[in-house]
Design a protein around this nucleic acid. Sequence first.
DNA 1: CCGTACATATCGTCA
DNA 2: TGACGATGTGTACGG
Lengths: 231, 231
Amino acid sequence: MRLVVATCSVAYSGRLSAHLPLATRVLMLKEDGSVLIHSDGGSYKPLNWMSPPCVTDTIEVDDEQREAGVIEQWKVTHTKTADILVISIHEIHHDSSHELGVDPGLIKDGVEADLQKLSAEHIEVYGEGFSLIRREYFTAIGPVDILARDANGETVAIEIKRRGDIDGVEQLTRYVELLNRDSTLAPVHGVFAAQEIKPQARTLAEDRGFRCVVLDLDDLRGLDTSHDKLF
Amino acid sequence: MRLVVATCSVAYSGRLSAHLPLATRVLMLKEDGSVLIHSDGGSYKPLNWMSPPCVTDTIEVDDEQREAGVIEQWKVTHTKTADILVISIHEIHHDSSHELGVDPGLIKDGVEADLQKLSAEHIEVYGEGFSLIRREYFTAIGPVDILARDANGETVAIEIKRRGDIDGVEQLTRYVELLNRDSTLAPVHGVFAAQEIKPQARTLAEDRGFRCVVLDLDDLRGLDTSHDKLF
DNA sequence: CCGTACATATCGTCA
DNA sequence: TGACGATGTGTACGG
């Protein structure tokens, strides 16, 4: 990992063209060849970057650029696509290299898969007398998150999202439509479940006759007394 | 901007829980309080981070942690949500601060707006004998990207995306449905246009009677001989 | 401030 | 390898 603080301008050409005017920025050059250009604000997304696999070459600075104040120029080329990033450096304020080694990586907990698994284990959160048919019920247009049976013995398709948006309702609509064509399953009801349901999504879901369920990960874990928490 | 290279472990608690085992990483602390934790690989996404607005506090290292080798501990708290990031530092290999100033920001060229403008100027890419009615044709559920007339004088609604996904087909479906209720426009046909159309989206679009058109930005520019390129 | 649409998204998974 | 869905998505531009 090489860290450079430099006054520079940047040009990118790939799926789109973009350029950065002259300013002081942080350049992060990683071991795999990738380059990130960060400013002193914004969030984790760099102003500009090149993803691996790519190579960085130092290119000749022509007279015109030299007169404009360019002391060094780096050309970063993607190995597979034709993407090119050119960094024109006017002044280097800091330059250091560091040996980092391989990172063991991030361990996550509490994503959609957990919601699905936990709520399937406590299927009653979707309604009194519900029973699980199966998780990831496969159809021609993709897997239904949970297929269950309600207290009346009728089929229920459950779509689970972390954030309940209109897209999820459309997805559930397609599943319910398809499943209702199967006479051994019909009538099939729909339940839209998420940790957070947007008002617009709720309106659309209820308009289409789907029930909305807000899932709480802590509550689900509370129901499961045998669950050992990571923290 | 403060750049720190340190051997550390990290715990995050927010929308999900996550933690990073002990390893050497780069910590980027920005002027706005945001913190990025980068390894020496991957792409531009940090292993872990905290978005602004947030504040970093140094917290007391208790005896147990001190014995485990922790020399310093930073607690980064989001000001609006309850998200918390705790960085436990075992060793600092590098620590430097830099004055960067405000960044003028990125200037882009070649995004959806350009696709829409260029293809409207060369409406024949959508079909022989097509003529433009107007761009951004406003309806109750939002603007239709392009409204055109085909060789038979019938109305065509065109939905443009950079990447053609199922969502875009759903959007086009809603527009065509709505416009067909207007007797002065009906019958209204649909065209789904994108730089790249996913197979699933193409299948759905054609199933719904929409024609698919793949747009090439370079071709569109080639048609327009008066266009001055940036590079 | 909230909601929608776009993005050089990136990332994991599974066929 | 390519398609597909999820993301602590971020970001700009509306109302």
